[in-house]
């Protein structure tokens, strides 16, 4: 069993969650104010998953992400300035403005991209995990995907191959209850996606995705198993998106109730975590506020950096189609 997180790890997880929350909240405002072009899929509500998993990873460990990818990149060490610059379509963005929100990535941080195709990540992560083993390292790959993606053939093919080859990979299903606008009960017969794990010959576990410590501990077990060469694990984190599928208020579609949202917001992962940290005497409310203020200032600096970044020169349009 992985040990419980020590104080330094708890503070680290708290900061990662706070960074995601404030970045995403500000990004949502900028999108709805028309300052960020295109579509943003925001991660607010799901922070405990990215933070709890990523606290175990180094830059040499790889992740694949989803269309809801900002949180994964932030938790993996993404800088606000370069991230906002990408969302703004500026030349200093992580992808020089060519990817945007749905393809934001950074190879140095081991982040193989958000992805606009639901379910595209798992097969790519299988390749990254193969690479980790081929090079005889103890590095791993983690693939994040949703309950909706678990119905894609790509997930099935990747899970089977990962288990067959005993690859160092962890499948993290962020079950936020909806595949886009369709509730889970209308898109799959199982309640727990983790039930599918034995069918692939790998262990599965369900964890409370609003509890960062629970995610951290379960991910620790799965990652240790992967690094030890014992093969993959399917870790299902039950969570909820506080914002809409796209943007904050989204398109105003009536697919979920205000009551349901309010019920989940009672279990806000950051509020829960701060309560626990206060009880443990690791971080009092005043200190938590100070973290928030410091992150908010960094977010503002990031936005200023992005706004000052030049738009890409049309001359670079055809650069990087080929190596």
């Amino acid at each position: 069993m992985t040990a419980q997180p020590d104080d330094a790890t708890l503070l680290d997880i708290h900061e990662r969650m706070t960074r995601i929350r404030i970045f995403e909240t500000e990004a949502g405002k900028l999108m709805e104010d028309g300052k960020i072009p295109g579509a943003l899929h925001l991660y607010v509500g799901q922070e405990a998953v990215a933070a709890g998993v990523m606290a175990h990873l180094s830059n040499a460990d790889w992740i694949t992400s989803t269309h809801r990818g900002h949180g994964h990149l932030i938790a993996k060490g993404g800088e606000f300035g370069r991230m906002f610059a990408e969302l703004f379509g500026r030349s200093d963005g992580y992808c020089k403005g060519k990817g945007g929100s749905m393809h934001i990535s950074n190879m140095e941080l081991g982040m193989l991209g958000a992805n606009g195709i639901v379910g595209a990540g798992p097969p790519i992560a299988v390749g990254a995990a193969f690479s980790c083993r081929f090079k005889q390292t103890r590095n791993v790959a983690v693939t994040f995907f949703g309950d909706g993606a678990s119905n894609e053939g790509s997930f099935h093919e990747a899970a089977n191959m990962a288990a067959l080859y005993k690859l160092p990979i962890v499948f993290v299903c962020e079950n936020n209850g909806y595949g886009e606008y369709t509730p889970q009960a209308n898109h799959q017969a199982v309640v727990d996606v983790a039930d599918r794990a034995p069918g692939y010959g790998m262990p599965g576990a369900v964890v409370d995705g609003m509890d960062a410590v629970a995610v951290y501990e379960a991910a620790g077990v799965a990652l240790e198993r992967a690094r030890d060469g014992a093969g993959p694990t399917l870790l299902e984190c039950k969570t909820y998106r506080f914002f809409d599928h796209v943007g904050v208020r989204g398109m105003g579609l009536s697919y979920r109730t205000d009551e349901e949202l309010a019920e989940w917001q009672q279990r806000d992962p950051i509020v829960l975590f701060e309560q626990r940290l206060a009880e443990l005497g690791v971080l009092d409310p005043g200190a938590a506020l100070a973290v928030r203020d410091a992150v908010a200032a960094q977010v503002q600096a990031g936005i200023e950096f992005a706004e000052a970044s030049p738009m890409p020169d049309p001359a670079v349009l055809l650069d990087d189609v080929y190596a």
Partner: peptide, 13 residues
């Protein structure tokens, strides 16, 4: 799809 995905992930890394 798994085979080509494995190739993409392995090549990128």
């Amino acid at each position: 799809e798994g085979i080509v995905g494995l190739g993409v992930g392995a090549a990128a890394t």
